[in-house]
Amino acid sequence: MTTIGLIGSGNIGSTVARLAVAAGHDVVLSNSRGPQTLEELVAELGPKARAATPAEAAAAGDIVVVTVPLHAYSAIPAGPVAGKVLIDTNNYYPERDGVIAELEDGSTTTGELVQRHFAGASVVKALNNIWFEHLRTLARPSGAPDRSALPIAGDDTAAKKAVAGFLDGIGYDTVDIGPLAENRRTQRDTPVYVAPYGAYGVPVGTPAGAQAVRDLVAAA
């Protein structure tokens, strides 16, 4: 089993951690406030989890998950992530992140901004289009008829294979939508964003299979 290093342990990060531990992975959690603020979550997760600094989580992870507000990614040291597979879950919300001209004019995407900062890593955009409660409730074993799928985008084939394997282990099929630039098709307010998995605010989600996800991505 791989070790998952989490930079950011909020709603998505903590949900990924719970699913990863349930699947047998070790997890190393971090946030901007310090390891001591994660003691309760680590205690809940048990012996396969520990808290650390972001740099330590990055160094420990075979796969590193960066799940912080978009305005905060550039403050994360890039060095410890070099050579790693990095899952980027970020979305752009101007009211929270401030206006980012490159995203407003469509000349780049959130995934490409993250890849630019973490130039030595292989960035795969994933887990950005599903509400954390649906991520928790829709996980299903491989082969289940009501299994949901999540889109992934990236420029490194091996990195996408590693991410697909991890997502399979925590309960999801994947739909490879192509290079990292194609993550524009899964961002906020696109057809595949949140709604296919059920109503926001209602924790019990609605399964969305691979073909449904392909169709919605194509419609973006």
Rank of each mutant, 00 (worst) to 15 (best):
I4R: 00
L135R: 07
I170K: 04
L216D: 10
Q36S: 15
E104K: 13
T190L: 04
V175F: 03
I130H: 03
T109V: 00
R140M: 05
A126Q: 01
L216H: 13
S107C: 01
V21C: 05
V217T: 08
D168R: 12
A159T: 00
P80W: 08
G120D: 01
I7M: 02
A181T: 13
A82N: 13
A219T: 11
S9C: 07
A60Q: 12
P69R: 09
H117G: 02
L38M: 12
G154D: 01
A82H: 12
H25A: 11
L103Q: 01
R136S: 14
L180N: 05
P35W: 11
A78G: 06
A158N: 01
Y197T: 14
P191L: 06
V28S: 10
D168F: 09
T206Q: 12
V21Y: 06
E44Q: 15
A58H: 08
E102L: 07
T3A: 10
A72C: 09
D97A: 02
L216I: 11
V163E: 00
D168G: 14
P69W: 09
N90F: 05
G106A: 01
A78S: 07
E44V: 15
T190S: 04
R18W: 09
A55Y: 12
A126N: 01
A78V: 05
A51P: 13
P80N: 05
L103K: 02
G34W: 12
G169S: 13
Q115Y: 02
R188P: 12
L138A: 07
A43E: 15
V28C: 10
A119G: 06
T157Q: 08
H71T: 15
L19Q: 03
E40N: 15
A52I: 13
D97K: 02
G106T: 00
V192C: 07
K125C: 00
D26H: 15
G13L: 01
A159F: 00
A181G: 12
Y92I: 02
P77S: 05
F118A: 05
V42R: 13
K160W: 00
I130T: 02
D215F: 11
V21L: 05
R136D: 14
I4V: 02
K48T: 15
P145T: 08
P196Q: 05
E95T: 14
K48S: 15
V85P: 00
I7H: 01
V21R: 06
L216N: 10
L150H: 06
V85A: 00
V163F: 00
I130S: 02
G178D: 03
T89M: 06
V217G: 09
S14A: 09
